[in-house]
Design a binder for these strands. Structure first.
Lengths: 235, 235
DNA sequence: TATAGTTGTCTAGATCAATAGACATTTTGG
DNA sequence: CCAAAATGTCTATTGATCTAGACAACTATA
Protein backbone atom coordinates (compact mmCIF):
# COMPACT_ATOMS: atom_id res chain seq x y z
CA UNK A 1 0.00 0.00 0.00
CA UNK A 2 1.18 3.47 -0.87
CA UNK A 3 3.61 2.21 -3.48
CA UNK A 4 2.29 1.91 -7.02
CA UNK A 5 2.15 -1.62 -8.37
CA UNK A 6 4.25 -0.78 -11.39
CA UNK A 7 6.99 0.48 -9.10
CA UNK A 8 6.96 -2.73 -7.08
CA UNK A 9 7.15 -4.71 -10.31
CA UNK A 10 10.06 -2.52 -11.43
CA UNK A 11 11.87 -3.31 -8.18
CA UNK A 12 11.38 -7.04 -8.69
CA UNK A 13 12.59 -6.96 -12.28
CA UNK A 14 15.61 -4.88 -11.24
CA UNK A 15 16.39 -7.43 -8.56
CA UNK A 16 16.09 -10.25 -11.07
CA UNK A 17 18.51 -8.49 -13.38
CA UNK A 18 21.04 -7.91 -10.60
CA UNK A 19 20.68 -11.57 -9.57
CA UNK A 20 21.63 -12.55 -13.10
CA UNK A 21 18.35 -14.36 -13.74
CA UNK A 22 18.32 -13.27 -17.37
CA UNK A 23 22.00 -13.54 -18.17
CA UNK A 24 21.41 -16.41 -20.59
CA UNK A 25 19.60 -14.19 -23.09
CA UNK A 26 20.75 -10.75 -22.04
CA UNK A 27 17.12 -9.75 -22.30
CA UNK A 28 14.18 -9.42 -19.97
CA UNK A 29 11.34 -11.89 -20.73
CA UNK A 30 8.57 -10.61 -23.03
CA UNK A 31 6.06 -8.24 -21.49
CA UNK A 32 3.30 -10.82 -21.74
CA UNK A 33 5.42 -13.39 -19.89
CA UNK A 34 6.29 -10.90 -17.14
CA UNK A 35 2.64 -9.91 -16.84
CA UNK A 36 1.71 -13.56 -16.37
CA UNK A 37 4.57 -14.17 -13.92
CA UNK A 38 3.62 -11.24 -11.71
CA UNK A 39 -0.10 -11.59 -12.20
CA UNK A 40 -0.65 -8.07 -13.50
CA UNK A 41 -1.74 -6.42 -16.69
CA UNK A 42 0.73 -5.98 -19.49
CA UNK A 43 0.35 -2.20 -19.25
CA UNK A 44 1.52 -2.32 -15.66
CA UNK A 45 4.62 -4.24 -16.72
CA UNK A 46 5.17 -1.65 -19.44
CA UNK A 47 5.10 1.14 -16.84
CA UNK A 48 7.68 -0.76 -14.82
CA UNK A 49 9.92 -1.32 -17.83
CA UNK A 50 9.55 2.33 -18.85
CA UNK A 51 10.86 3.30 -15.42
CA UNK A 52 13.80 0.91 -15.75
CA UNK A 53 14.51 2.28 -19.23
CA UNK A 54 14.48 5.78 -17.73
CA UNK A 55 17.13 4.58 -15.26
CA UNK A 56 19.18 3.30 -18.17
CA UNK A 57 19.01 -0.28 -16.91
CA UNK A 58 17.16 -1.68 -19.93
CA UNK A 59 16.43 -0.62 -23.50
CA UNK A 60 13.30 -1.72 -25.35
CA UNK A 61 13.58 -2.51 -29.07
CA UNK A 62 10.35 -2.92 -30.95
CA UNK A 63 9.97 -6.35 -32.44
CA UNK A 64 12.97 -7.81 -30.64
CA UNK A 65 12.54 -7.41 -26.92
CA UNK A 66 13.86 -5.49 -23.95
CA UNK A 67 17.65 -5.60 -23.72
CA UNK A 68 19.52 -5.41 -20.45
CA UNK A 69 22.16 -2.72 -20.29
CA UNK A 70 23.94 -4.26 -17.36
CA UNK A 71 25.45 -1.70 -15.07
CA UNK A 72 27.38 -3.27 -12.20
CA UNK A 73 27.25 -1.45 -8.92
CA UNK A 74 30.48 0.45 -8.38
CA UNK A 75 32.25 -0.93 -5.32
CA UNK A 76 33.43 1.69 -2.85
CA UNK A 77 36.11 0.45 -0.44
CA UNK A 78 36.03 1.56 3.18
CA UNK A 79 39.21 0.94 5.12
CA UNK A 80 41.61 2.77 7.37
CA UNK A 81 43.00 4.39 4.24
CA UNK A 82 39.85 5.34 2.42
CA UNK A 83 40.52 7.65 -0.52
CA UNK A 84 37.66 8.42 -2.86
CA UNK A 85 39.35 8.42 -6.26
CA UNK A 86 41.90 5.67 -5.61
CA UNK A 87 39.32 3.04 -4.71
CA UNK A 88 37.16 3.64 -7.76
CA UNK A 89 40.14 3.71 -10.09
CA UNK A 90 39.63 0.76 -12.37
CA UNK A 91 35.85 0.47 -12.15
CA UNK A 92 35.05 3.71 -13.95
CA UNK A 93 36.94 5.31 -16.76
CA UNK A 94 36.44 8.89 -15.70
CA UNK A 95 35.80 10.32 -12.24
CA UNK A 96 34.19 13.73 -11.95
CA UNK A 97 34.04 15.84 -8.81
CA UNK A 98 32.08 19.05 -8.63
CA UNK A 99 32.29 21.60 -5.83
CA UNK A 100 28.71 22.72 -5.31
CA UNK A 101 29.57 25.35 -2.75
CA UNK A 102 31.51 26.12 0.36
CA UNK A 103 31.41 28.34 3.39
CA UNK A 104 32.46 28.86 6.96
CA UNK A 105 30.06 27.73 9.67
CA UNK A 106 30.20 27.43 13.47
CA UNK A 107 30.47 23.86 14.74
CA UNK A 108 27.13 22.53 15.94
CA UNK A 109 26.77 20.02 18.76
CA UNK A 110 27.09 16.68 17.02
CA UNK A 111 29.77 17.76 14.58
CA UNK A 112 31.72 19.60 17.28
CA UNK A 113 31.73 16.44 19.38
CA UNK A 114 32.95 14.31 16.49
CA UNK A 115 35.75 16.74 15.59
CA UNK A 116 36.58 17.23 19.27
CA UNK A 117 36.24 21.04 19.18
CA UNK A 118 34.07 23.42 21.21
CA UNK A 119 30.64 24.17 19.80
CA UNK A 120 30.87 27.37 17.76
CA UNK A 121 34.42 26.75 16.53
CA UNK A 122 34.64 27.91 12.90
CA UNK A 123 34.63 25.09 10.36
CA UNK A 124 35.09 25.05 6.61
CA UNK A 125 32.12 23.35 4.93
CA UNK A 126 32.39 21.78 1.47
CA UNK A 127 29.48 20.46 -0.55
CA UNK A 128 30.40 18.20 -3.45
CA UNK A 129 28.99 15.76 -5.98
CA UNK A 130 31.07 12.96 -7.46
CA UNK A 131 30.28 10.96 -10.55
CA UNK A 132 31.71 8.09 -12.53
CA UNK A 133 31.52 8.10 -16.32
CA UNK A 134 28.94 10.85 -16.10
CA UNK A 135 26.62 9.10 -13.63
CA UNK A 136 26.31 10.81 -10.24
CA UNK A 137 27.47 8.38 -7.56
CA UNK A 138 27.59 10.34 -4.33
CA UNK A 139 27.18 13.74 -2.74
CA UNK A 140 28.94 14.85 0.40
CA UNK A 141 29.03 17.59 3.01
CA UNK A 142 32.41 17.78 4.73
CA UNK A 143 33.67 19.85 7.64
CA UNK A 144 37.26 20.86 8.46
CA UNK A 145 38.62 22.90 11.38
CA UNK A 146 39.09 26.36 9.87
CA UNK A 147 42.11 27.29 11.97
CA UNK A 148 44.14 24.33 10.74
CA UNK A 149 42.89 24.15 7.14
CA UNK A 150 42.00 27.75 6.25
CA UNK A 151 42.29 27.35 2.49
CA UNK A 152 40.50 24.01 2.20
CA UNK A 153 37.84 25.25 -0.22
CA UNK A 154 40.25 27.00 -2.57
CA UNK A 155 42.70 24.11 -2.57
CA UNK A 156 39.98 21.54 -3.15
CA UNK A 157 38.57 23.59 -6.01
CA UNK A 158 42.04 23.87 -7.53
CA UNK A 159 43.27 20.31 -6.94
CA UNK A 160 39.99 18.37 -7.10
CA UNK A 161 40.98 16.10 -4.22
CA UNK A 162 40.70 16.21 -0.44
CA UNK A 163 43.95 14.29 -0.06
CA UNK A 164 45.83 16.87 -2.14
CA UNK A 165 44.12 19.75 -0.36
CA UNK A 166 45.27 18.27 2.96
CA UNK A 167 48.80 17.94 1.57
CA UNK A 168 48.76 21.60 0.60
CA UNK A 169 48.17 22.35 4.29
CA UNK A 170 51.11 20.18 5.30
CA UNK A 171 49.09 17.08 6.22
CA UNK A 172 50.55 14.14 4.33
CA UNK A 173 48.60 11.26 5.81
CA UNK A 174 45.34 10.60 7.59
CA UNK A 175 43.22 7.58 8.50
CA UNK A 176 39.57 6.69 8.82
CA UNK A 177 38.57 6.51 12.48
CA UNK A 178 34.94 5.51 12.25
CA UNK A 179 32.11 5.11 9.79
CA UNK A 180 28.41 4.76 10.43
CA UNK A 181 26.08 3.67 7.68
CA UNK A 182 22.35 4.08 7.43
CA UNK A 183 20.05 3.61 4.46
CA UNK A 184 16.92 5.66 3.85
CA UNK A 185 14.77 7.20 1.14
CA UNK A 186 16.43 10.08 -0.68
CA UNK A 187 15.36 13.63 0.16
CA UNK A 188 14.28 16.03 -2.57
CA UNK A 189 17.71 17.68 -2.74
CA UNK A 190 19.45 14.32 -3.03
CA UNK A 191 17.07 13.22 -5.78
CA UNK A 192 18.08 16.29 -7.76
CA UNK A 193 21.83 16.11 -7.11
CA UNK A 194 22.13 12.39 -7.81
CA UNK A 195 19.55 12.38 -10.64
CA UNK A 196 17.38 9.77 -8.91
CA UNK A 197 13.65 9.14 -9.18
CA UNK A 198 11.24 9.42 -6.23
CA UNK A 199 11.40 6.48 -3.85
CA UNK A 200 15.09 5.95 -4.56
CA UNK A 201 17.43 4.92 -1.77
CA UNK A 202 20.60 6.53 -0.49
CA UNK A 203 23.19 5.04 1.80
CA UNK A 204 24.50 7.70 4.14
CA UNK A 205 27.96 7.23 5.61
CA UNK A 206 28.99 9.49 8.47
CA UNK A 207 32.73 9.28 8.70
CA UNK A 208 35.52 10.75 10.75
CA UNK A 209 39.11 11.05 9.58
CA UNK A 210 42.05 11.91 11.80
CA UNK A 211 45.76 12.57 11.38
CA UNK A 212 48.31 10.05 12.61
CA UNK A 213 48.35 11.69 16.04
CA UNK A 214 44.66 10.95 16.35
CA UNK A 215 43.49 14.55 15.94
CA UNK A 216 40.27 14.72 13.88
CA UNK A 217 40.74 16.51 10.57
CA UNK A 218 37.52 15.84 8.68
CA UNK A 219 33.93 14.96 9.44
CA UNK A 220 31.72 14.17 6.48
CA UNK A 221 28.28 12.93 5.54
CA UNK A 222 28.42 11.14 2.20
CA UNK A 223 25.23 9.99 0.52
CA UNK A 224 25.67 7.22 -2.06
CA UNK A 225 23.08 6.40 -4.74
CA UNK A 226 22.19 2.92 -3.48
CA UNK A 227 21.35 1.46 -6.87
CA UNK A 228 24.73 2.44 -8.30
CA UNK A 229 27.09 1.66 -5.45
CA UNK A 230 27.98 -1.02 -2.95
CA UNK A 231 30.23 -0.47 0.03
CA UNK A 232 33.09 -2.85 0.61
CA UNK A 233 34.40 -3.02 4.16
CA UNK A 234 38.05 -3.97 4.40
CA UNK A 235 39.13 -4.88 7.88
CA UNK B 1 5.65 9.41 -9.27
CA UNK B 2 4.70 5.89 -8.39
CA UNK B 3 4.98 6.52 -4.68
CA UNK B 4 1.84 7.75 -2.93
CA UNK B 5 2.07 11.30 -1.66
CA UNK B 6 1.19 10.31 1.90
CA UNK B 7 4.10 7.87 1.91
CA UNK B 8 6.52 10.56 0.74
CA UNK B 9 5.22 12.87 3.47
CA UNK B 10 5.64 10.06 6.00
CA UNK B 11 9.26 9.66 4.91
CA UNK B 12 9.90 13.38 5.38
CA UNK B 13 8.30 13.47 8.82
CA UNK B 14 10.25 10.36 9.86
CA UNK B 15 13.44 12.07 8.70
CA UNK B 16 12.56 15.19 10.66
CA UNK B 17 12.03 13.11 13.77
CA UNK B 18 15.34 11.29 13.37
CA UNK B 19 17.05 14.66 12.77
CA UNK B 20 15.69 15.81 16.11
CA UNK B 21 13.72 18.69 14.58
CA UNK B 22 10.92 18.27 17.11
CA UNK B 23 12.94 17.43 20.19
CA UNK B 24 11.94 20.70 21.89
CA UNK B 25 8.32 19.64 22.24
CA UNK B 26 8.54 15.88 21.87
CA UNK B 27 5.62 16.20 19.50
CA UNK B 28 5.11 16.49 15.78
CA UNK B 29 3.62 19.86 14.72
CA UNK B 30 -0.21 19.97 14.37
CA UNK B 31 -1.65 18.33 11.29
CA UNK B 32 -2.74 21.70 9.88
CA UNK B 33 0.80 23.06 10.25
CA UNK B 34 2.32 20.01 8.56
CA UNK B 35 -0.24 20.25 5.76
CA UNK B 36 0.73 23.88 5.18
CA UNK B 37 4.45 23.09 5.39
CA UNK B 38 4.29 20.32 2.80
CA UNK B 39 1.63 21.98 0.69
CA UNK B 40 -0.83 19.10 0.88
CA UNK B 41 -4.26 18.46 2.30
CA UNK B 42 -4.63 17.72 5.97
CA UNK B 43 -6.07 14.30 5.13
CA UNK B 44 -2.86 13.39 3.31
CA UNK B 45 -0.85 14.33 6.40
CA UNK B 46 -3.19 12.18 8.46
CA UNK B 47 -2.52 9.18 6.21
CA UNK B 48 1.20 9.76 6.69
CA UNK B 49 0.88 10.02 10.47
CA UNK B 50 -1.30 6.91 10.54
CA UNK B 51 1.50 5.02 8.81
CA UNK B 52 4.06 6.32 11.30
CA UNK B 53 1.74 5.36 14.16
CA UNK B 54 1.50 1.88 12.64
CA UNK B 55 5.31 1.72 12.76
CA UNK B 56 5.17 2.71 16.41
CA UNK B 57 7.16 5.87 15.77
CA UNK B 58 4.41 8.29 16.91
CA UNK B 59 1.20 8.14 18.91
CA UNK B 60 -1.72 10.51 18.29
CA UNK B 61 -3.72 11.76 21.27
CA UNK B 62 -6.98 13.51 20.51
CA UNK B 63 -7.02 17.07 21.76
CA UNK B 64 -3.31 17.17 22.57
CA UNK B 65 -1.28 16.33 19.53
CA UNK B 66 0.90 13.60 18.07
CA UNK B 67 3.60 12.42 20.45
CA UNK B 68 6.93 11.06 19.30
CA UNK B 69 7.88 7.65 20.63
CA UNK B 70 11.52 7.93 19.76
CA UNK B 71 13.18 4.71 18.78
CA UNK B 72 16.91 5.07 18.17
CA UNK B 73 18.42 2.96 15.44
CA UNK B 74 20.28 0.01 16.90
CA UNK B 75 23.98 0.25 16.02
CA UNK B 76 25.49 -2.92 14.62
CA UNK B 77 29.30 -3.03 14.80
CA UNK B 78 31.27 -4.53 11.92
CA UNK B 79 34.89 -5.32 12.67
CA UNK B 80 37.35 -8.19 12.36
CA UNK B 81 35.65 -9.74 15.37
CA UNK B 82 32.02 -9.27 14.48
CA UNK B 83 29.72 -11.25 16.77
CA UNK B 84 26.02 -10.65 16.48
CA UNK B 85 24.88 -10.78 20.09
CA UNK B 86 27.93 -9.21 21.68
CA UNK B 87 27.72 -6.00 19.66
CA UNK B 88 24.07 -5.38 20.41
CA UNK B 89 24.48 -6.15 24.08
CA UNK B 90 23.66 -2.93 25.85
CA UNK B 91 21.35 -1.40 23.22
CA UNK B 92 18.55 -3.90 23.57
CA UNK B 93 17.40 -5.67 26.66
CA UNK B 94 16.52 -8.96 25.04
CA UNK B 95 17.89 -10.52 21.87
CA UNK B 96 15.86 -13.16 20.12
CA UNK B 97 17.10 -15.50 17.40
CA UNK B 98 14.83 -17.84 15.52
CA UNK B 99 15.94 -20.65 13.25
CA UNK B 100 13.52 -20.54 10.34
CA UNK B 101 14.89 -23.59 8.64
CA UNK B 102 17.99 -25.40 7.52
CA UNK B 103 19.17 -27.85 4.91
CA UNK B 104 22.06 -29.15 2.92
CA UNK B 105 22.64 -27.64 -0.51
CA UNK B 106 25.35 -27.89 -3.15
CA UNK B 107 27.61 -24.84 -3.41
CA UNK B 108 26.64 -22.60 -6.32
CA UNK B 109 29.13 -20.54 -8.28
CA UNK B 110 29.34 -17.33 -6.31
CA UNK B 111 29.13 -18.93 -2.89
CA UNK B 112 31.58 -21.68 -3.85
CA UNK B 113 34.07 -19.04 -4.94
CA UNK B 114 33.68 -17.11 -1.69
CA UNK B 115 34.11 -20.22 0.46
CA UNK B 116 36.95 -21.45 -1.77
CA UNK B 117 35.38 -24.84 -2.47
CA UNK B 118 34.46 -26.55 -5.73
CA UNK B 119 30.97 -25.88 -7.07
CA UNK B 120 28.69 -28.64 -5.88
CA UNK B 121 30.45 -29.17 -2.55
CA UNK B 122 27.78 -29.82 0.10
CA UNK B 123 27.03 -26.87 2.37
CA UNK B 124 24.87 -26.48 5.44
CA UNK B 125 22.37 -23.66 4.96
CA UNK B 126 20.79 -21.85 7.91
CA UNK B 127 17.96 -19.32 7.67
CA UNK B 128 17.44 -17.16 10.74
CA UNK B 129 15.66 -14.07 12.01
CA UNK B 130 17.01 -11.97 14.86
CA UNK B 131 15.11 -9.43 16.89
CA UNK B 132 15.76 -6.99 19.69
CA UNK B 133 13.13 -6.43 22.34
CA UNK B 134 10.59 -8.10 20.11
CA UNK B 135 11.27 -6.00 16.99
CA UNK B 136 12.74 -7.94 14.07
CA UNK B 137 16.14 -6.47 13.21
CA UNK B 138 17.68 -8.75 10.62
CA UNK B 139 17.29 -11.98 8.71
CA UNK B 140 20.16 -14.05 7.40
CA UNK B 141 21.01 -16.98 5.16
CA UNK B 142 24.33 -18.56 6.10
CA UNK B 143 26.40 -21.32 4.49
CA UNK B 144 28.98 -23.60 6.11
CA UNK B 145 31.12 -26.36 4.57
CA UNK B 146 29.25 -29.54 5.49
CA UNK B 147 32.33 -31.72 5.84
CA UNK B 148 33.88 -29.53 8.50
CA UNK B 149 30.71 -28.43 10.33
CA UNK B 150 28.31 -31.35 9.88
CA UNK B 151 26.13 -30.58 12.91
CA UNK B 152 25.90 -26.84 12.41
CA UNK B 153 22.09 -26.72 12.26
CA UNK B 154 21.53 -28.87 15.34
CA UNK B 155 24.17 -27.03 17.36
CA UNK B 156 22.84 -23.63 16.35
CA UNK B 157 19.32 -24.66 17.22
CA UNK B 158 20.52 -25.92 20.58
CA UNK B 159 22.96 -23.12 21.48
CA UNK B 160 21.34 -20.17 19.71
CA UNK B 161 24.66 -18.76 18.57
CA UNK B 162 26.94 -19.27 15.61
CA UNK B 163 30.02 -18.66 17.74
CA UNK B 164 29.00 -21.44 20.15
CA UNK B 165 28.07 -23.78 17.30
CA UNK B 166 31.55 -23.23 15.84
CA UNK B 167 33.07 -23.95 19.24
CA UNK B 168 31.14 -27.22 19.39
CA UNK B 169 32.95 -28.19 16.18
CA UNK B 170 36.31 -27.35 17.68
CA UNK B 171 36.64 -23.88 16.12
CA UNK B 172 37.37 -21.42 18.90
CA UNK B 173 38.05 -18.26 16.93
CA UNK B 174 37.27 -16.76 13.56
CA UNK B 175 37.51 -13.35 11.92
CA UNK B 176 35.60 -11.30 9.40
CA UNK B 177 37.43 -11.28 6.09
CA UNK B 178 35.22 -9.06 3.98
CA UNK B 179 31.84 -7.38 3.97
CA UNK B 180 29.94 -5.86 1.10
CA UNK B 181 26.93 -3.68 1.72
CA UNK B 182 24.14 -2.74 -0.63
CA UNK B 183 20.79 -1.12 0.10
CA UNK B 184 17.60 -1.86 -1.80
CA UNK B 185 13.85 -2.18 -1.44
CA UNK B 186 12.76 -5.18 0.59
CA UNK B 187 11.39 -8.22 -1.22
CA UNK B 188 8.03 -9.70 -0.26
CA UNK B 189 9.64 -12.41 1.89
CA UNK B 190 11.75 -9.83 3.74
CA UNK B 191 8.73 -7.61 4.33
CA UNK B 192 7.04 -10.54 6.04
CA UNK B 193 10.03 -11.78 8.06
CA UNK B 194 11.04 -8.33 9.29
CA UNK B 195 7.47 -7.04 9.67
CA UNK B 196 8.04 -4.11 7.33
CA UNK B 197 5.61 -2.19 5.15
CA UNK B 198 5.84 -2.02 1.35
CA UNK B 199 8.53 0.34 0.11
CA UNK B 200 10.71 -0.34 3.14
CA UNK B 201 14.45 -0.57 2.78
CA UNK B 202 16.86 -3.34 3.71
CA UNK B 203 20.64 -3.16 3.95
CA UNK B 204 22.14 -6.41 2.72
CA UNK B 205 25.57 -7.36 3.99
CA UNK B 206 27.37 -10.20 2.26
CA UNK B 207 30.09 -11.31 4.58
CA UNK B 208 32.80 -13.92 4.72
CA UNK B 209 34.31 -15.29 7.93
CA UNK B 210 37.45 -17.39 8.10
CA UNK B 211 39.40 -19.24 10.76
CA UNK B 212 42.76 -17.94 11.90
CA UNK B 213 44.52 -19.93 9.16
CA UNK B 214 42.53 -18.01 6.59
CA UNK B 215 40.25 -20.89 5.63
CA UNK B 216 36.69 -19.67 4.98
CA UNK B 217 34.19 -21.06 7.48
CA UNK B 218 31.01 -19.07 6.84
CA UNK B 219 29.45 -17.11 4.03
CA UNK B 220 26.28 -15.22 4.87
CA UNK B 221 23.80 -12.74 3.47
CA UNK B 222 22.27 -10.68 6.26
CA UNK B 223 19.43 -8.26 5.55
CA UNK B 224 18.95 -5.52 8.13
CA UNK B 225 15.75 -3.49 8.51
CA UNK B 226 17.18 -0.13 7.47
CA UNK B 227 14.87 1.98 9.60
CA UNK B 228 15.84 0.10 12.76
CA UNK B 229 19.57 -0.38 12.32
CA UNK B 230 22.74 1.47 11.48
CA UNK B 231 26.02 -0.21 10.69
CA UNK B 232 29.13 0.93 12.48
CA UNK B 233 32.43 0.15 10.77
CA UNK B 234 35.34 -0.29 13.14
CA UNK B 235 38.69 -0.33 11.43
C1' DT C 1 -16.43 27.08 32.87
C1' DA C 2 -15.54 29.05 28.45
C1' DT C 3 -12.49 29.01 24.66
C1' DA C 4 -8.84 28.01 21.63
C1' DG C 5 -6.37 24.38 19.73
C1' DT C 6 -5.97 19.76 18.53
C1' DT C 7 -7.23 15.05 16.60
C1' DG C 8 -11.29 12.07 14.72
C1' DT C 9 -14.95 11.29 11.30
C1' DC C 10 -17.90 11.89 7.49
C1' DT C 11 -19.33 13.29 2.58
C1' DA C 12 -18.39 14.69 -2.15
C1' DG C 13 -15.75 15.50 -6.20
C1' DA C 14 -11.29 15.44 -9.04
C1' DT C 15 -7.24 13.12 -10.40
C1' DC C 16 -4.19 9.11 -10.92
C1' DA C 17 -3.31 3.99 -11.21
C1' DA C 18 -4.59 -0.41 -13.02
C1' DT C 19 -7.28 -3.47 -15.97
C1' DA C 20 -9.12 -4.87 -20.42
C1' DG C 21 -9.14 -5.17 -25.28
C1' DA C 22 -7.92 -4.02 -30.04
C1' DC C 23 -4.73 -3.06 -33.45
C1' DA C 24 -0.31 -0.95 -35.47
C1' DT C 25 4.66 -1.40 -36.14
C1' DT C 26 8.99 -3.72 -36.15
C1' DT C 27 12.14 -7.74 -36.05
C1' DT C 28 13.28 -12.50 -36.67
C1' DG C 29 13.29 -16.88 -38.86
C1' DG C 30 11.33 -20.48 -41.79
C1' DC D 1 7.79 -13.28 -48.64
C1' DC D 2 5.08 -14.60 -44.89
C1' DA D 3 3.94 -15.65 -40.22
C1' DA D 4 5.08 -15.52 -35.51
C1' DA D 5 6.55 -12.83 -31.82
C1' DA D 6 7.67 -8.86 -29.82
C1' DT D 7 7.05 -3.73 -28.55
C1' DG D 8 4.14 0.71 -29.40
C1' DT D 9 -0.30 3.19 -29.20
C1' DC D 10 -5.04 4.11 -28.42
C1' DT D 11 -9.78 3.97 -26.00
C1' DA D 12 -12.71 2.85 -22.16
C1' DT D 13 -13.80 1.43 -17.41
C1' DT D 14 -13.00 0.62 -12.55
C1' DG D 15 -10.96 1.53 -8.17
C1' DA D 16 -7.61 4.02 -5.20
C1' DT D 17 -5.59 8.44 -3.93
C1' DC D 18 -5.86 13.33 -3.05
C1' DT D 19 -8.35 17.57 -2.32
C1' DA D 20 -12.04 20.23 -0.10
C1' DG D 21 -15.13 21.37 3.48
C1' DA D 22 -17.79 20.77 7.66
C1' DC D 23 -18.35 19.30 12.15
C1' DA D 24 -17.65 16.21 16.33
C1' DA D 25 -14.73 14.91 20.32
C1' DC D 26 -11.20 15.74 23.36
C1' DT D 27 -7.43 18.50 26.05
C1' DA D 28 -5.29 22.31 28.16
C1' DT D 29 -5.47 26.87 29.86
C1' DA D 30 -7.07 31.37 31.18
Amino acid sequence: MGVALWRQIADRIRLGISNGDYDATGMVPPETALAAEFGVNRHTVRSALAALAEEGLVRAVQGRGTLIERKERVSYPISRRTRFSAGLGRQVKEIGTELLGHGQVPASGEIAAALDVSPGTPLIELRTVSSGDGRPLSTAISYYPADRFPRMAEQYARLGSVTKAFAAHGLDDYVRVSTEIVARHAEAEELALLKLSPGAIVMEAQSLNADLDGRPVEYSRTRFAADRMKLRIET
